[in-house]
Simulated scan of single mutants.
Amino acid sequence: MIWIRSIFLKLFITYIAILIVSHVASYLLFQHNITSIHVISELNHLHEMKSLFVFTSFISIIITGIFAYYLSKKITAPLREMNRIALQIAKGQFNQQVEVKNRDEIGELGKTFNYMANELSSLDQMRKDFVANVSHDLRSPLTSILGFSKAFLDETIPEERKHHYFTLMKEQSERMLKLVNDLLDVARIEAGQLEIRTVSFNLSELVRQVVARMEPEFVKKQVSVELISNCEQDIYAHADPNKIDQVIVNLIQNAVQFSSNNSYVEVILNKEEQAEISIRDYGSGIRQDDIESIWDRFYKAERSRTHKTGTGLGLSIVKHILDLHHTDIRVESEIGKGTTFTFKLPISSN
């Protein structure tokens, strides 16, 4: 009955088969004994009939029980297998799979069960990678700060170099603070606690403030930032200004991070049917195979984690915030020529 795709039909046909077997058995037994019944008295005839039907019922129950047992065992075998594997998955063995042979409801359940096991395995691997990446990104700055602190206590650092090492310690502390803040943002996003409060605000002024606030980073990286707009008047948008501020900061930091010294970054603000914001750099670019993965937590197109200071969470947070605003972000990149991130916001009146 593998070709029957409904477990209801399987059980129904099984029930009909059991009834047919039972009646055939009763009929055969009755036919075998009917020739001797007519020569017996009426009392003996009734007694014989009772005995016959008792015996027939007993045989029918046995036959029905055997059929029902083996058929039920075969039908429910996938369910018992899923129960066994579910207990193993509960113990952390996520590589278990249910062998799906049927195409009925139980077969569909088995496919869904295997999909769930694969997703749990992926989540478990992500958890392990998450712990490993966080440990690495926290250990590196802590090791640097600890080493510099010991050098200061041992007074092995020349006076003229102290300012340089204090600056390094400050940078490493800021890196840890950014990582912790990003982790808190990710935790709020996953818990559904990141709230979006949309209002009308001056998007042009917000972009100018972000660029001015980040000027020390541009100077340190020796990267110039150019603000370009196709509209002489300020553009007003309807969104959450605090979260959009965070999006623009993360995108500019990403652009500066992957720009070479003495390069420049363009922040382009256009007004069409919607307000369009683009962040363009002329750095190393992103491979096409990596573009779909850049939104993953801790993903870095640069496999080396030593010379890049990003946490690998900025773009993931950007994507989540823009998803909450129900807007997409577009990425255009070419190796050796740079990358452009573009997203849109609804326009609001002043």
Rank of each mutant, 00 (worst) to 15 (best):
S348K: 10
G110Q: 00
V39P: 00
V21Q: 00
V210Q: 00
I59H: 07
L46P: 03
D154Q: 11
E272G: 09
H38Q: 11
L251Y: 05
S121N: 09
R197S: 15
D323E: 13
L203A: 04
I279G: 05
L46S: 08
Q222Y: 09
I62V: 09
S304L: 13
E81W: 00
A86S: 15
L28I: 12
S200N: 14
S349W: 02
L324E: 06
S349Y: 07
T327F: 08
V267Q: 04
H38G: 03
Q274W: 06
L322M: 04
N102L: 09
V318W: 08
H45F: 14
Q125V: 08
S36Q: 10
N95D: 15
R175F: 01
D289E: 15
I63H: 07
G310L: 13
P78N: 07
H320C: 08
E108A: 12
I228L: 05
T156G: 13
G107S: 08
L123N: 05
S349T: 12
R103P: 00
S41F: 01
S348D: 06
S6K: 04
R84A: 09
T76F: 14
Q253C: 11
E215C: 02
F67M: 10
D281A: 06
M214N: 13
Q93T: 08
G338E: 10
V219H: 08
G312P: 02
M176W: 01
D234S: 07
N261P: 00
F298L: 03
K337F: 10
F130A: 03
A68K: 02
F12K: 02
P216G: 07
V247C: 01
E215F: 08
L269A: 04
